[in-house]
Design a protein around this nucleic acid. Structure first.
Lengths: 347, 347
DNA sequence: CCCAAATGTGGGAGCGCTTCCACAATTGCC
DNA sequence: GGCAATTGTGGAAGCGCTCCCACATTTGGG
């Protein structure tokens, strides 16, 4: 028996579809589509008819239908494998997001922020990316264990890392500041002003930035023939900086210089030093890392290694968009930005 | 002439499709689909055949195709019409996001963060929402001019506001703290400890929370027969709190109590008071608003009005999900949470 | 003035999925 | 043991869109 189906397109129930626009404009669906998307090969007549129809009908294209055929979602993900607290307290992320949105604003691409607190939700994040909900991913602040670089390389999603990934660095693109050079320079500045016992408060051991910054400190120390034994790790938060400084000063009371892997931690350290009655920079000189605002507001103001986070995020985003636009040229690529030492009062 | 089309599904080029899964599992596409989505009306045999096929093929459903027919995207937007700087510096947003992600984690729904710096990008945000890229929207911290509540009500997107919207409050649901009662209580606390000249640092004039908090302060003042004339506006940032405090102390040097509409601004005010040599709480008692961490860390620690931001965000999110699940019951609804005064050292 | 190139248009075939429906194969109940 | 209810299955119809291709219709050289 022939089944009778009521065509729903006859009466516009919900959102108007392209079909209706075409009908109202008196053109074919193909022409309407062309007119709506850039208007190549469309006569002025047809174009304006479609424009009018779109306006009167209040037509908005259905993104699902569109992306089903174009295979593009016009959105990219920013993946941040950090607990939300850190994301929303470290100016590093604000700067990054600012850079990203600036570039995205130029084109019509949406940003999807994927906050994946380490562990549990990484799988979900990965699934989301594997499903190709987005055209590409920008991974910021990743940790050793998430193995994000390999996973993303495996699923073939265009991606760019902010900061060198642990492994798979040869399979994905990344933008990084020259952490080694930066921290070396910072350490050298302390050495130049006469410090001989220089400790460091490093970042979390499972991030490459930490590793590289320690390496920079080590290099400078060994070149100067100084012992590089006073190391304490924090997690880039102010509180961890306080704790690390306390531990460091207890174990090495003779320290006269402190190289800290982030301004936030340095701010925490300054507090502790003030508590302990150590004058900065006279008793202990301190250098931070980042220069994203907090360095100017500590007392004393922090001498620090500036990394141009906004700019780096911009570069990374542009790089990502290139790869999204041209999936062929997926040769891995790295951009290394030189940091600059900004001298203030603390060293 | 008959055109010959090469069926692409013959050879699996890119991602495997449901068709291939079905073929490999030896079932129809319909059965495969059922097996993948919950497995209602699927025999154990078929189920496991499909499961295996999915695994060996590495199948992931195409979300665009799925949402084209289900008309669901399984993602919701959190709309924050604020400059990124504020979003990433005010713990209010961190708390909100934490509450939202907690609820979303229970189900398989993704969060899309829409940062719409006021003005320019509101149109874009609105377009994104109109396109139904998401199933619903949670609007946080909205301002008078964006008219988001009306627009969202117009396009019929399920939405919930965090904080009472300016207009259209009768058309959308919202979750809010009882700002009036909170600030009234704060002011009464100052009055109770003997303050007679109580000024206030309010939030931005284009937000309902500011308006309501001022109203609370006014109520308490007028009940006590005190003049409510010392008002200064900030924008909830620490810097603006400093400026406001400076202005207030200049215009009303005799102030002995300060009701501040956010802890961040109160922290700024405390700095200024310290600079001016005013002792807190002896010369001037200060009460903040929020209690999201910073209040404990100021010196002296801040007496403040606690709003349970996490919990509010949770409520709002659940409310939103209900409306997404059941678009019928779109009756507006409001949830008002009572705040509590937390007494510390500053008042 | 003729033929080739450029331009505009519509038909129609999908994109990959869910879901309605018809139909078979079980099962259960009196 | 017969019939209704339940359960499992596949065919097929779309969801709303883009884009290939065929087919006019203009345009422009030589």
């Amino acid at each position: 028996m022939a089944r009778v189906t009521t065509p729903r397109s006859t009466v516009s129930a919900g959102q108007p579809t392209l079909d209706e626009v075409a009908r109202v404009a008196g053109v074919s669906r193909a022409t309407a589509s062309r007119a709506i998307n850039g208007g190549q090969r469309v006569s002025a007549r047809a174009q304006s008819a479609v424009d009018t129809a779109v306006r009167t009908l209040g037509y908005v294209p259905n993104p699902a239908a569109r992306s089903l055929v174009t295979r593009r979602t016009d959105s990219i993900a920013v993946v941040v494998p950090e607990p939300d607290d850190r994301v929303f307290s470290d100016p590093f992320f604000a700067g990054t997001l600012r850079g990203v949105t600036r570039v995205l604003g130029e084109r019509d691409i949406q940003l999807v922020l994927l906050l994946a607190r380490p562990g549990a939700s990484t799988a979900r994040t990965l699934r989301y990316l594997t499903n190709r909900h987005v055209d590409g991913a920008l991974v910021v602040s990743h940790h050793r264990d998430d193995r994000l670089a390999e996973h993303l390389a495996d699923i073939g999603l265009p991606c760019v890392f902010g900061g060198r990934p642990w492994t798979g660095g040869d399979r994905v693109a990344y933008v990084d500041v020259d952490n080694v050079a930066g921290e070396r320079e910072a350490t050298e500045a302390l050495i130049a002003r006469g410090c001989t016992r220089i400790g460091t408060i490093a970042g979390p051991a499972d991030m490459t930035a930490s590793e590289d910054r320690i390496a920079g400190w080590r290099q400078a120390m060994s070149t100067a023939g100084l012992a590089a034994d006073a190391v304490e790790h924090g997690d880039f938060t102010e509180a961890s900086g306080e704790a690390a400084a306390r531990a460091l000063m207890e174990r090495h009371p003779d320290i006269d210089g402190l190289v800290v892997a982030s301004d936030l931690m340095a701010a925490g350290a300054l507090k502790v030093l003030a508590e302990l009655g150590r004058r900065v920079p006279d008793d202990i000189a301190v250098v931070g890392f980042d220069d994203l605002g907090v360095a100017e507001r500590t007392s004393p103001a922090l001498t620090t290694v500036r990394q141009p986070v906004d700019e780096m995020a911009e570069r990374a985003t542009r790089l990502l968009l290139e790869r999204v636009d041209e999936p062929g040229s997926s040769r891995p690529m790295r951009v290394i930005i030189p940091p600059t030492l900004v001298r203030r009062a603390s060293a």
